[in-house]
Design a protein around this nucleic acid. Structure first.
Length: 184
DNA sequence: AAAGAGATGGTCT
DNA sequence: GACCATCTCTTTT
């Protein structure tokens, strides 16, 4: 499996999001390797009132304005670390939120981090994804295009779903009708 | 099966 | 001081 190239990420988030489905995210943190298949995503653009970049550049959203293919992590509700893939060329604040994973490797590690649960509930939500992968703000800005990174995204040849399910995004209060949430 | 509420902390006005 | 791109547990139909 090889990482996706930076150029692949340099496109608009609503276009990238469905193509990210079925890609693999790998984390190698604290000596534990975990792999998950991406099964739910949401797109956010700078134009979008629901996006963290909508108000313009700030300290928190700096990574979203940075180079594509890097990781934007934010602390949600003071508790959960949510992962985003930065898309679009540098200077354009877009990203794709990873909302859910299907465990592929290191299920035991995920279960230890998450507390014993059915496999289905190990990473079926953005906060759970962060916890299962062991990712926190320390990984802010990580280059997801480098195999040597502690977190990276690869393609094992599995194609994205032909007709992903599309619908409104979850947990937001603005632009609630924009259909930028994708699932297989 | 659905609805409600508390946890918890960084970011921005 | 308000607002969250959430999760879990408890209470109520």
């Amino acid at each position: 499996m090889r990482p996706l190239e930076r150029a692949w990420y340099a496109r608009d988030a609503p276009v990238i999001a469905p193509e990210l489905l079925n890609k693999l995210i790998v984390s190698k943190i604290d000596g534990d390797t975990v792999v998950g298949r991406i099964t739910e995503v949401e797109a956010y653009t700078q134009d979008d009132p629901a996006s963290h970049t909508h108000p313009g550049p700030t300290a928190r959203n700096a990574a979203m304005f940075g180079p594509p293919g890097h990781l934007y992590v934010y602390l949600s509700y003071g508790i959960h670390h949510c992962l985003n893939v930065v898309t679009a060329p540098e200077g354009d604040g877009q990203a794709v939120l990873i909302r859910a994973l299907q465990p592929v490797e290191g299920v035991d590690v995920m279960a230890r981090r998450r507390g014993r649960r059915p496999d289905r509930e190990l990473a079926n939500g953005p906060g759970k994804v962060g916890q299962a992968l062991g990712v926190d703000l320390d990984r802010y800005g990580t280059d997801l295009t480098a195999r040597s990174s502690v977190v990276w995204i690869g393609d094992d040849g599995t194609a994205p779903p032909v007709s992903p399910r599309v619908g409104p995004r979850i947990g937001i209060s603005k632009a609630i009708d924009t259909p930028w949430r994708f699932r297989p």
